[in-house]
């Protein structure tokens, strides 16, 4: 059964559609990458999935026992104020909050926060002030926070923005590993090359239309061929390609 189902969904702001008539299903264990030009509505789609904006028409349903507090989320831009006094540890810990009803953090939650700071490579920044970090360091802290609240689904909006190439590679490896362990991943990205290597499914948004399917079919679709600079790496295509030349 699908984890998230979009049934004829249209989304937009103030009654003006940004995306129209989307229908697709995301299954548990999928690794979905959402690609498309700037302003094509990727972030808007994410927000509707998270319930931050409600669709103009159609329904988005969570199945398979997926609840809002099973989701980890790394926003593209947070409206975090420049002058907010908070340590990295406090920020990361706040990701654990969606679970547990105690007024204080449990030992387990603290350990989760530590482990995720380690994964994001920011253990040494624990007591630093969040607003005094570099852009990439802030991104890592927010990633650690997202990991803390991830139980079934991890939603990332352009996660490698501001990361150096090594950190970006580490991030991809980490996400792949989480996906192997059964976490469903949905990632908005402009790094199409990494997307076709890692993702099991691709959602490509365009002005009037969209593509949703497995990475393999995407590579063979017209929309994919137009958007991608590289040729499809699969054996069949390489053979055809050589044959054609």
């Amino acid at each position: 059964m699908s984890l998230i189902k979009f049934a004829d969904v249209s989304i937009g702001y103030e009654g003006v559609n940004v995306l129209s008539n989307l229908s697709f299903e995301i299954n548990a264990g999928d690794y979905l990458c959402i690609v498309g030009e700037n302003g094509s509505g990727k972030t808007t789609l994410m927000k509707s999935m998270l319930g931050l904006i409600s669709p103009i028409s159609g329904t988005i349903s969570f199945n398979d026992g997926l609840k809002q507090n099973h989701i980890g989320y790394l926003p593209q831009q947070s409206k975090i104020q420049k002058d907010f006094p908070a340590s990295v540890y406090e920020v990361v810990l706040s990701g654990c909050l969606s679970k547990g009803f105690l007024p204080f953090y449990s030992k387990f939650q603290k350990k989760t926060a530590f482990d995720n700071m380690q994964k994001a490579g920011i253990s040494d920044l624990k007591n630093k002030c969040f607003r005094e970090l570099s852009g990439g360091q802030q991104q890592r802290a927010l990633l650690a926070r997202a990991l803390c609240s991830t139980e079934k689904l991890l939603i990332l909006d352009e996660p490698i923005t501001g990361l150096d190439p090594i950190a970006a590679q580490e991030l991809y490896t980490l996400i792949k590993q989480l996906n192997h362990n059964g976490i469903t991943v949905i990632m908005v990205t402009h790094d199409v090359n990494a997307a076709i290597v890692n993702a099991s499914h691709i959602l490509h948004l365009e002005k009037e239309t969209y593509f949703y399917g497995t990475t393999h079919t995407y590579l063979h679709s017209d929309i994919g061929k137009r958007f991608l600079v590289t040729d499809c790496p699969c054996d069949n295509c390489q053979k055809n390609h050589r044959g054609g030349v």
Partner: peptide
């Protein structure tokens, strides 16, 4: 803790079920 979370980043709090 909850007041901290909704003060720091209300969208994240809402997205993750608070």
């Amino acid at each position: 803790n909850k007041i901290f979370a909704v003060t720091f980043d209300e969208n994240f709090a809402r997205a993750t079920g608070l």
